[in-house]
């Protein structure tokens, strides 16, 4: 097989990884603070849409990215306030926020652009691509790092920063403590409610970033429900990475590769089959890497439904 072809697959995998990595990091910060956030999907989708909308109006990719992050944060704030402040059941809030954002973006798509289904226009300004000074001269490496946007590089930096924040700073220690034992935190005057809402808002911002990386990364367009389960795949990546930002990078790369595999084999295998690959890969990965950590996980899984009825 042509080595350049392989490298281009890797390159495509790197680009597919970004949204998943961001969603996984968002999931991690929520989990670490003791919140189960299922609304990642919605938080991403709003980012995808707002990014394109602001891009269309201002022709500025930078503003578009910032607006997407803010929009994600706002949805995150809604989720956080409902789940943490009002103790609403996480599954209920998560699924309905996902549906709400799905509907909202479809309506806004019609209001802003007057179209239904999706929006694509040559006037949309794509993100600038990073040209690495030395590497772009080297034949193979240039293929590998071809066409990556600043958003792609920055996502790894964010993962490392999150690692340092959680495990090396005082604030991070407090966030972890809230996740471990809420009463202990409160006995020291650390507000669990505030910390958790802040974590969910941060997750919203991360997802907004992930969403805009999706709508303005490989392509520059918006389609209804274009996140297609990536928020949940991010949850799976977070699960595999055991809530550790560094491990999450590798888990997300795996899912990025399965995405790229699906995209590159489309011409040889019917697309209906290849499209299902990322989803099958997610389930398989969760099965293969399941350690028998059953006891702990069982508890959290079942507590979810408790508040529903």
């Amino acid at each position: 097989m042509d080595i350049n072809y392989v490298l281009s697959v890797v390159n495509s995998a790197l680009r597919s990884t970004t949204p998943i990595l961001l969603a996984a990091l968002a999931s991690a910060i929520c989990t670490r603070s003791g919140v189960f956030n299922v609304a990642l999907e919605g938080q991403m989708l709003i980012g995808s849409f707002v990014g394109i909308a602001v891009n269309w109006v201002t022709h500025s990719p930078t503003l578009a990215v910032l607006a997407a992050i803010v929009a994600g944060g706002l949805v995150g704030a809604l989720v956080g306030i409902l789940q943490v402040r009002y103790n609403a059941a996480d599954m209920v809030v998560g699924t309905s926020v996902n549906l709400l954002v799905g509907a909202l973006t479809a309506i806004l798509l019609f209001v802003v652009f007057g179209v239904k289904g999706g929006f694509k226009d040559p006037a949309l300004v794509p993100l600038p691509k990073v040209k690495l000074p030395v590497i772009s001269e080297i034949p193979y490496l240039s293929t590998l790092f071809n066409n990556l946007s600043p958003l792609d590089y920055l996502s790894y930096v964010i993962a490392i920063v999150m690692y340092i924040y959680l495990f090396k700073t005082v604030k991070g220690y407090h966030l972890l403590s809230v996740g471990v034992k809420r009463e202990a935190a409160e006995s020291m005057g650390i507000s669990a409610v505030k910390t958790r809402i802040a974590a969910v808002i941060a997750s919203g911002c991360l997802c907004g970033y992930g969403g805009v990386a999706l709508s303005m990364g490989q392509v520059t367009l918006f389609a209804e429900n274009m996140t297609a389960g990536r928020g949940f795949i991010g949850m799976a990546a977070c699960n595999l990475g055991k809530n550790n930002p560094i491990a999450i990078i590798f888990a997300s790369l795996f899912f990025g590769f399965s995405d790229a595999f699906a995209a590159t084999t489309q011409n040889t295998i019917p697309s209906q089959l290849t499209q299902s690959v990322p989803y099958i890969a997610t389930i398989l990965a969760l099965i293969v890497f399941s350690r028998k950590r059953k006891k702990k996980a069982t508890k959290t899984e079942e507590s979810k439904a408790e508040a529903v009825s």
Binding site: Y173, V180, E183
Partner: peptide, 30 residues
């Protein structure tokens, strides 16, 4: 000293004792 301890089980004794009044270096780091 309350009846049910307000400790964080997965952290060390030292981390628990300074909890809430942590010594810092360069402002943010623990």
């Amino acid at each position: 000293v309350q009846q049910n301890f307000m400790l964080l089980p997965p952290f060390t004794v030292a981390e628990n004792i300074v909890y809430g009044n942590e010594p810092r270096k360069s402002r943010f780091l623990f």
